[in-house]
Amino acid sequence: MTESSLDPAAAPPAQARPGSGWRRFAADWASDQTSFKGVSWGKAMMWVFLLSDTFVFGCFLVAYMTARMSTTVPWPNPSEVFALEIGGTEVPLILIAIMTFVLISSSGTMALAVHYGYLRDRRKAGRLMLATALFGACFVGMQAFEWTKLIREGVRPWTNPWGAPQFGSSFFMITGFHGTHVTIGVIFLLVLARKVLRGDYETGRRGFFTSRRGRYEAIEIMGLYWHFVDLVWVFIFAFFYLW
């Protein structure tokens, strides 16, 4: 195919580099053509993007912690604020616990989807992606419920009944930003699931926007994003709700 007319003799000799694991690691990095051997462009791009996005979330969290530590007014107690009344008793953090559980489960279904994708079992892969999207949608739904509840109780971005106004500001900003990530993920999952179920990756159908052919690897790249969003949630959970 495209390889056709290359004369192997004219190419530079392969560089044999003996040595320890680290040396070989460095040699791989510095060798020609690709720095990450066997990693496709799409996957490399997702990793770089996630690194950048890590800095976004990192800045958000650091900013929130600064606000929380420097405020002179008491910070509302998260266990009380985020409690639900079930059967007459206040259960602290119950909703968040369920949300966290749902999101982590969705990482499981995502991982299975990747697995079946590589097995070219498009039915199972597609359905598992739909399940992942469903979990994600549940998560966003519960978040919407939580937002509604807090707003009913008088929490606003600029004020709240229990203490430092930065509580509401940070809460809406950080969970909102994370929720947006989940929502975008759900949308992409649905689009990708449709492609998988339709068999685009078998027939070589070209993408609507990029006009490129896709591969089952797309599921894994999607999975990277999804696991990342999940991991970020764990940090938000720890720093916002448990602190």
């Binding site: 495209t2 390889e3 290359l6 496709s40 462009w41 070589g204 490129r212 052919r213 896709g214 591969r215």
Partner: peptide, 28 residues
Amino acid sequence: MVDVTHGGPISGGTASGAAPAFEVGEPD
């Protein structure tokens, strides 16, 4: 076979001793 889709690694190795072929196929 060269994989011309997203530039995944080319399957199949290089002829022994000869210079490495393109690791990545032509972009689409």
